[in-house]
Each structure stands twice: as C-alpha cells, then as structure tokens.
Simulated scan of single mutants.
Amino acid sequence: MKTVIKTSSLIHWLRFCDKIIGSSEYSFGNVFLSYKDGLVMRATDGCLTCWMKIAECDQFYGEIPIGLKLLKGFLTGEKSQEIQITILQDQIILQGYQETLRIRTSQPKEREHMKSFKEIGKTRLTKFMNFLDFATAALEEGDMTYLSSFESSLIMISPSKTIVSLCKVDDHINEFFSFSIPYMSSRHIVKALKTYEKDCSLTLAIGEAWFSMISDDFAMQVCGERDSQQGRIEQIFVRGEPYQLYTAFAKFVSKAAWLLPKDTPLTIIGTEKKIHFYGSYGTVQYKADLDIGLQKPFEIEVSPHRLRSALSRMGTRIFLTVFDEFVRIEDQKGRYVIIKVKRDQ
C-alpha cells in the first residue's frame, strides 16, 4: 500500500498524537496505522484513545505500531511538501525530499475499533475545550472530573482538596447522564484540542464505560465510570446575593500562591467592612485586605495555587456569593468555584 500525505498535515497530526499520549508512560509511545475509509492513525494514553483519518489510501489489513518519536525525528527539518508512506508486510517506508526511513514492523494485529456509544448532544470544540480547561485546571494526579447533564446543559465538575471547579456549558443535552473521567486523560484532551487550532462541531456520546467526542476529522473515547452528582449540582445553583469582586482579589490570591508553599492554605475571611487574606509558614507571613464589606460573614481555607489556576481562566468580572455551607465565586460565562465554609468560625 502506498499513499502520499502533506508534510504539514502529518506534522499537525503527530503533534496532536503527542498531546494524547502525554509523557507519563513510555510504553504508550507508539501510534498505530490502520485502514477505515482511508489511512487512520490511532494514539492512546491507556485510557484516552483517539482515531484520526490522515490520508486517502488503499485498503490493508490490521493495525501497525510505529514509534511516535521516530516519526517526529524523521520530519524534523523536512523540506518536502509531501511524504510518501509505503506499508509492506514487514516494514513501513517513509520517503521525503532527500531522505528515507525504513522501520521493521511486527505482524499486524486486528484493528482496534471504537466502543459502541449513544449520542447525547452536540457542542462546539472550542467551547468544550475552554470549559474543560477551566474545570480541570486546579486538579492533580488521582483527581477525577465529572461530566453530567443538568437542565439540558452539560456540566463539568472537578472536586479537589479545597475547592470545586464547576462550569455549565449551555448546549442542549438530550438525555440525563453522569460520568467520571481521570484527571490525566482530561488534561490530555484539553492539550490535544488546543493543537487542533480550529473550531468545529463536536458530537458528544456515552457508552457503558466510555465518553466519546466525535468531529469530522477525529474521534476520541476516554474511559471512566458512570456516576451521580445530581444532588450536589442542585445545591450549587441556588440563588444568592452576589458581590462583584475587585481585580485585587485575584491579585492577592496569586501573590499568596507565589509566596506560600504548595500545601500551605490561605485563609480568607469576609466581614462587614473588608475581606482579609492571611497565610503563613515558618518565619513568613502574608496579609492583605480588600475593601469590600459583606452582609453575611464567612471564613474559608483554600489552596492559593489551585484557586489561582481557576481564577486565571475566568472572565474579568467575577462575583462572590456567601451561603451557609459554601462560598461561590463565578463569572458571567458559566464558570464557578465552590469553597467550603469553615464550621468552627
């Protein structure tokens, strides 16, 4: 089988695959070539898997692994406009302007197919990417992101040690679902979609243990579990009295993140006259005051590093609402941060 692909297109999809695979597991450093209505490239991090149609070609059997690092290395500095790919029984040959790369391959295995799924709605790629980027920004390895429906909208919830990041994507979801996906793969989705560099329609679908995102150029499936966050979501969207926060609020949180070690909490206390910030470790203390008075006082402890990550992805106008159990910070684009109120105040 022989085919030709534009060099720029191949570089683009290899960059996309690089973000899918990530760097945490060397064993997942391969991409896989197969046929389905053309030449298909597959990449995986072990949980997230993506299929991309990269060129037209004649049909061939099975799925052939090839090292991503080899392909990237061969294309470094490549001057030709097109790359010819030849797939033989025991090798793959890439030919450029003045160079040829031959790679011995193992016996092809049966092509890995997408798992069965049911469509639940549509959104736009850029919108989905930006909201998932916000929802997962404060997470760390071992955390989970919950995707759910609420009043026909797509909801993303990411609970971490001291804050919950939540966003509401106002796209029609045509049935109820709730699903959790691991942090590492959720960040790989964000990074890969950023390299895609264009907006398009994105179909969302769900299976027994897979959440799917499908466009005209690629299809992603990420492993996870069915879950339920419905009761928590209803509490978060309770109406309250919001106060607009000055930009200094985000500045003080950011300053605390620079000055305090990662695991050191920042105490934020709201009173009738001011909002106070306090953090300390060893011989270092950081204090700041913001001239905003609140009718309902509160006290919270939060990781300034996690809160900074969330605030940096919110709009320029942010609002704070105080409830008995939690404080809610939100912008006007459906992005929220929830922080539990200290009970012993």
Rank of each mutant, 00 (worst) to 15 (best):
L14Y: 08
K342I: 13
F252Y: 14
A248L: 10
E112S: 05
A138M: 10
K6W: 03
Q84F: 10
R124E: 12
A192C: 13
M184G: 06
L266M: 02
K340W: 03
E99W: 08
I189Q: 07
V327T: 11
F218H: 03
G121V: 01
E325N: 10
M144Y: 13
S201M: 15
Q81H: 11
G270Y: 12
K333T: 13
W13E: 06
D291Y: 02
R187N: 14
K36H: 06
N130T: 12
T271N: 09
L259D: 04
A192S: 14
T7V: 07
L307E: 00
K109F: 11
L33G: 09
Q59S: 15
L48S: 04
H276R: 02
L259A: 08
S185D: 04
F252A: 03
E25M: 04
L139G: 15
S201N: 15
V337W: 03
G315Q: 04
I300G: 02
D170H: 08
Q98H: 12
N174F: 10
P182T: 08
A257S: 09
K6E: 10
G77A: 07
C17Q: 03
T247S: 13
E197T: 11
G38R: 01
S148C: 12
T7R: 12
F177Q: 03
Q221A: 06
L166D: 03
I181E: 07
S280R: 14
I268R: 02
D199G: 10
F128D: 07
L259V: 10
K333M: 14
P304K: 01
E325D: 14
P159A: 04
T316G: 00
I85A: 09
F249D: 04
K333S: 15
L193I: 13
I292Q: 07
L132W: 05
S24L: 07
K251Y: 07
T264W: 01
S212L: 08
S106N: 12
C17V: 03
S185M: 03
F150Y: 14
A257C: 01
H113E: 15
F117R: 11
A192N: 11
P159Y: 07
G77N: 07
I338K: 07
G67E: 14
I300T: 00
G73N: 15
M156G: 09
Y35E: 04
L260A: 04
I268C: 03
S8W: 04
S180M: 11
T267R: 02
T76D: 13
